[in-house]
């Protein structure tokens, strides 16, 4: 099972004001808020953590059938302090592994049950206007869409 989530950073900038009072308190625990406040680029850190949570939630939701809006139940941490690309998301007692790619245009995260499975995931990211019309026929394991970007994980 695979999860994925993409955040178009330009759209996120206009769509969401995470600096709004109370915003981060609703979605992040104290450890995650510390990651944001100490980050070189807090904006990217917010969307990195958010995409990790979304990617993990997508598998968790399919596995358990539970549908809820509880971002604080999903606790993110980085495997290594210096490497933002490999992470863990804990939901209740279950642990999911995430791998992210970060650039100036987007943040993209994939998720799976084991680190080994992460390496086997194939990713395709398309930018508008080059979204393939028949992408559903390729049977992606998870589809994520935000702003200019379409991200498929197999």
């Amino acid at each position: 099972m695979v999860g994925n989530d993409i955040v178009d950073l330009n759209l996120a900038k206009i769509q969401s004001n995470w600096q709004r009072k109370g915003y981060l308190d609703k979605i992040f625990n104290s450890n995650e808020k510390l990651l944001v406040s100490s980050a070189e680029d807090p904006d990217v850190m917010v969307w990195l953590l958010w995409s990790m949570k979304e990617a993990a939630y997508k598998i968790h939701n399919r596995k358990t059938g539970i549908r809820e809006y509880a971002p604080k139940k999903l606790a993110c941490s980085m495997l290594q302090k210096t490497d933002l690309t490999l992470g863990i998301v804990n939901i209740d007692e279950v642990m999911y592994f995430t791998k992210s790619s970060i650039n100036s245009a987007y943040v993209h995260s994939i998720s799976s049950f084991t680190p080994h499975q992460l390496d086997e995931i194939k990713i395709s990211i398309y930018e508008l206007p080059n979204h393939p019309s028949n992408y559903r026929e390729t049977k992606p394991g998870c589809i994520s869409h935000h702003g200019k970007y379409l991200a498929l994980a197999y």
Partner: peptide, 8 residues
């Protein structure tokens, strides 16, 4: 991410 805004 905007659902948070709605809740607020």
């Amino acid at each position: 991410a905007n659902l948070v805004d709605i809740v607020l």
